[in-house]
Amino acid sequence: MSIKISAQQCIGCGQCAEVCPGSLIVLRDSKAAIPRPERCWGCASCVKECPAGAILFYLGTDMGGQGGTLSVRRERHLLHWTVSKPDGGRVSITLDSRDSNKY
């Protein structure tokens, strides 16, 4: 379980580093990096914070990850989640923080 940060997409705002509950993300030359990816809890806090969509969330192969990724874009109270499947397919799910979970 961990995250990948795209140096190309990263705009160096530092928001992800601010929220990580394990203080795992650092900024080097204005780009975010995770030097110890094996310490990631997989909480997705950084993914939700990134304004540039530069952080992708994936499941490690040791826990059965198949190469899919999860990303999210925040728009006020909306969270637009996208799952990219290993076969290239995509699924999008939008959640509104004003709606409760059904279950």
Partner: peptide
């Protein structure tokens, strides 16, 4: 669908697992 949403709100890895594996 509702379960996929509920898990995104607390344990997003489960939703990723469901969707990446089909």
């Amino acid at each position: 669908t509702e379960l996929q949403k509920a898990y995104l709100n607390m344990a997003p890895s489960q939703t990723l697992r469901w969707l990446e594996s089909g």
